[in-house]
Amino acid sequence: MIDTGDDAPDFTVPLANGDVESFTLSDRLDEAPIVLAFFPAAFTNTCTTEMCTFRDRLASFEDVGGTVYGVSVDLPYTLNEFRERNDLNFGLLSDERRELIEAYGVIDRWEPRDIRVAKRAVFVVDADGRITYAWVGDTPKQEPDYEAVHGAAVDAA
């Protein structure tokens, strides 16, 4: 797993922001601190609660120049529907090829069909592309400490 102080693995994935665009982390470092909030699956209870909590707290991240992105293995079209239904005011990154969950070391396997999804995890990336905060949940229903994430974003600003 990637940890605090490590260089953030660079990546390019689809960005669901109402449209579907390309997102490359290294091209977005001017938006730092960047919060990458990994979640297992759109439209599930805890994931909806988590993304809506980030929605409700987005202004506090923007106040320090930060940006929040949700990350899941869902297709970008599913993520756009999830954004619309939950009035999410930030972009969602589609790791449909499961490259990010592998690079960041946050793969969870749902049995019995061995479906690979993201563990619930949060990483804060600073303007130099370094991880300044890393948290991975112990269970799929465990939510992050939102105050700690905000504090890390403030420190990385």
Rank of each mutant, 00 (worst) to 15 (best):
E111R: 12
V136S: 10
R55H: 08
E99L: 00
D138W: 03
L79I: 08
D3F: 11
L29V: 06
G129Y: 07
S26N: 14
D30L: 05
F90Q: 10
F90A: 09
L88K: 01
P40T: 14
R57M: 14
N86L: 09
P9R: 02
A152E: 08
W110T: 15
D114A: 09
D114S: 06
E147W: 04
N45R: 13
A103D: 14
D56N: 12
R116N: 10
D19V: 01
T12G: 12
L79C: 02
D27W: 11
V106S: 05
D87S: 15
A59M: 11
R97L: 11
R83Y: 01
F11Y: 09
S94F: 08
S94H: 08
N80Y: 03
C47M: 11
V13A: 00
L25W: 03
D19Y: 00
T139E: 14
F82I: 10
L93T: 11
H150W: 12
P9W: 03
P144I: 11
A118D: 14
T4R: 13
A42G: 15
R130S: 13
L93S: 10
D95K: 02
R113E: 14
Y104W: 03
D19C: 00
V124M: 04
E99C: 04
Y146K: 01
E111Q: 13
S60L: 13
G129F: 07
F38Q: 11
M51S: 05
S60I: 06
P40E: 11
A156P: 03
R130E: 15
E21W: 00
R113K: 11
A118I: 00
R28M: 13
G5H: 04
M51Y: 02
Y69F: 15
R55K: 12
W110Q: 15
V149E: 04
T139M: 03
A42K: 04
Y77S: 07
D10P: 01
S72C: 09
D27H: 13
D3E: 15
D155C: 01
